[in-house]
Nucleic acid binder design. Structure first.
Lengths: 198, 198
DNA sequence: AGCATTTATCAACGCTTGTTGACTTTTACC
DNA sequence: GGTAAAAGTCAACAAGCGTTGATAAATGCT
C-alpha cells in the first residue's frame, strides 16, 4: 500500500473501492441468510446478488462461517426505559422490537440460521444474555435472566409466526394491535413477582 | 404376492418384515429432522441410523420430501376444555403443550424444518389452523384465528427457546414454573376482549 | 510512461448430496 | 426342492456445494 493512501485512509478521508464491494456482499448475505437460512444460502447465490465473483466473497470474508458472523452482527439498541411507567414498559418494548425487526434483515437472518446452525444459536443466546438481561437489571427487578428468557420466548415467538412462518392472523396484525396484545404480557414477565415454587 | 399372504394381511393377522424397516426409517427420520433440520438431515444419515441402505429409503418413501411429509405427521391431541374453569384454560393448555412437545420428536422436527422449508412451514400453518383454531371456536370466543395465532406465538416461542435454541434460563424451568408464567398469558389471549382499534 | 499494488476473473478441485438401476439374497408358497 | 415375489445390496450418476490458485484487468503513485 502506498504511503499517501495509508495516510488518507487513516484520517478517514477516503474509502477504498473495495469497501463498496464488501458492503454489497454483506447486504446480499443478510438478505439471503434471512430468506433461506444458513445452509440454503449459498455463497454463489450471495455473490450473484452482489453481482461479483464468488471468489471475492472468500477473499473478503475468508469462509462462509465468517461471512455469516459478519452478517449477523446485531445491536438491539434497547433504549433506557427509565422515563416509562412500570405498567407500560412492556408496550414500549414490543414497539421497539417491532421496528427493530422490520428495520433490516439481520435479525431474521440470525433467527433463521440459529434454528439449524449451532454457531448462530450461540450468537442468539448471547444477544439476549448480553443485551436484554443487563437492561432488565437496570430496571431493578429480580431474576433478570429468567425474565429476559420469558421476554425472549414471546418476542421470538412473535417474530417466528409473523416474519418466518407468516401465520396469517399474526402477520396481518397492525403494530398497535400487536402492542395491545403482547405489551401486557411482557409487562407481567418483567414486573410480576416470581411464582411460588412447589 | 401370494394369496394366503394377502388374506393374512387383509385380516390384520400378520405384519410384513418391511413394516419394521418402514418404522425404523420413520423413527430415524424424525430424530434427524428434529436434530438437524430439513437440509442438514441427509437420507444417508437417516439410513445409517436405521441400519439399512439409503436405497431402501427411496424404495419405501419415494424421495426426501415425501419422507419428511410422513415423518412430520402430527396430531396435537388437544383435549376438551369444557370442564376447565375459564381462568385456568391457559394453564391446562400450557401443560398439555409441554407433554406433547416432550413426548416425541415430531414437533421439534416440524419446527426446525419449517423455518427453512416452505412445505414444512405450510404444514405448520395448517397444524394450527386446523387443530387449534377449531378448538377455540368450541370455547365460544370471538376471533378464534387471531387468538389461535397469539397462542401459537407464545407456545412456539417457548418451544424455540427451550428445545431449539436452548436458552439456559428458559430450558431449566420446571413444568410448574412454565405453567405459572405462561398459563395466564394464554388465558388472556383466549378470553380477554379484543383491543379497541385505533 | 512504467510499475507495483489492489481488485476482479476464471477454471477447476474434492466432496457431499439425492436419486437410480442392475444385481443378489431372503422369504413364502406350490 | 423349485420358483416367483419381496427385501436388501451395491456402485454409480449428475448436480451443487465451499474453496483454491493461477491469471488478468484496473488503479494510483512516481
Amino acid at each position: 500500500m502506498k504511503s499517501q493512501q495509508v495516510l488518507a485512509y487513516a484520517l478517514g478521508m477516503a474509502e477504498r473501492k473495495s469497501d463498496r464491494t464488501r458492503a454489497a456482499i454483506l447486504a446480499a448475505a443478510r438478505e439471503r441468510f434471512g430468506a433461506d437460512g444458513y445452509e440454503r444460502a449459498t455463497i454463489r447465490a450471495i455473490a450473484a446478488d452482489a453481482a461479483i465473483d464468488p471468489a471475492m466473497v472468500m477473499r473478503y470474508y475468508g469462509n462462509k462461517e465468517k461471512l455469516f458472523a459478519a452478517a449477523a452482527e446485531f445491536d438491539l439498541r434497547l433504549p433506557d426505559f427509565d422515563g416509562v411507567p412500570r405498567e407500560e414498559v412492556g408496550e414500549a418494548m414490543v414497539r421497539h422490537f417491532l421496528t427493530r425487526w422490520e428495520g433490516d434483515d439481520t435479525l431474521r437472518a440470525l433467527l433463521r440460521a440459529a434454528v439449524t446452525n449451532e454457531v448462530a444459536a450461540e450468537r442468539m443466546r448471547q444477544l439476549f444474555a448480553s443485551q436484554l438481561a443487563p437492561t432488565l437489571r437496570e430496571l431493578a427487578v429480580d431474576a433478570p435472566a429468567v425474565r429476559a428468557g420469558l421476554v425472549a420466548s414471546q418476542a421470538l415467538g412473535l417474530a417466528l409466526c409473523r416474519y418466518i412462518l407468516e401465520i396469517g392472523p399474526i402477520a396481518k396484525l397492525s403494530h398497535d394491535e400487536v402492542v395491545a396484545w403482547l405489551g401486557p404480557t411482557l409487562t407481567r414477565y418483567l414486573t410480576a413477582p416470581l411464582p411460588t415454587q412447589a
